[in-house]
Structure formats: structure tokens, C-alpha cells
Design a protein around this nucleic acid. Sequence first.
DNA 1: GTGTGACTCTTAGTCCGTA
DNA 2: GTACGGACTAAGAGTCACA
Lengths: 69, 69
Amino acid sequence: MDIRKVVARNLRRARRSVGFSQEVLAERAKVDRSYVSRIETAKVSVGIDTLANLARALGVRPIDLLEEP
Amino acid sequence: MDIRKVVARNLRRARRSVGFSQEVLAERAKVDRSYVSRIETAKVSVGIDTLANLARALGVRPIDLLEEP
DNA sequence: GTGTGACTCTTAGTCCGTA
DNA sequence: GTACGGACTAAGAGTCACA
């Protein structure tokens, strides 16, 4: 499976499981809301720095966002 | 620990364990050799697409390159 | 609350060489 | 066999508007 889609789904799942909107996550991770949307729709190849920021904002490990189904 | 350093060390370890030089890995993963060097010295925030390519070229999972010590 | 287009700026990633 | 530098090109990342 495409790694972008893996990240997309894991990010969305993790985000929803803590009850954050894209807006809240974006604010906490200090990225733009529209960029969170692009990651969750697999439009971009997110960098590991940003991935780590998102993971931290969600209280999960970066590795969790790469977990395959 | 800085995620760049985690990736740097894991990549170098995985690469050496299969006996590849940076050159060989670069060729197989279709990235520039100098860029492999920059990743292994934590100079850049590699994108997940490239990370996946490197992992595949080494016969490991992308997730393995993010494993913490 | 989310996805997307258009734009800008920064950085990823390439290609050369050199130590 | 590896690190680093400069000069480039592609794409990540930021900002804003609109459906």
C-alpha cells in the first residue's frame, strides 16, 4: 500500500480518537490546517520533521503513523 | 531524541547490515548518493516517499527506520 | 469542519566537484 | 567509500480565499 495513504489513514484515525478537528491539530502541531487536510488526503509526501510534530501533538509516536493495516 | 537522528542511525545500520555502500543504496532507491549522506548525517528532513523507497531498497519496512532505541 | 486552487517561500533532492 | 560545498530544479510547507 502507498505509504502516503497509510499515513493519511493513521493520522486521521489518531486525530479522531483524541477528538481533535483538523483545525485543533493544526494549531497544536503548528502547521496550517489546509496542510493537515492535504496529508490526510494523501496529496503530499510529508517530511519526517512535520510527521514528528503531528505525532507529538496527538500524543502518539511517529512510528504509530506508519503502522500498516 | 531528534527524529532525524533516529532515521539517520537506523538507515545506516540497516544499510550496513545488508552490506550496501551509500552509492549502491542510492542507485537502488533511485536517489542521489549525496542525499543518502545527508540523511545519514541528519542534515535533512527526508520525505515519507523517499523514506519508503530507501526502506524497500534495503528490504526493511519504513517503520523499521523510525524505531527508537 | 473539510477539501482544493493559486500563490509564495523554503527546503528536499540532483548534479557537479573536491577533500 | 564518505562528507561537504555550490548551483541548480522539484516539491514540501505556509498563507489565504472559496465552495
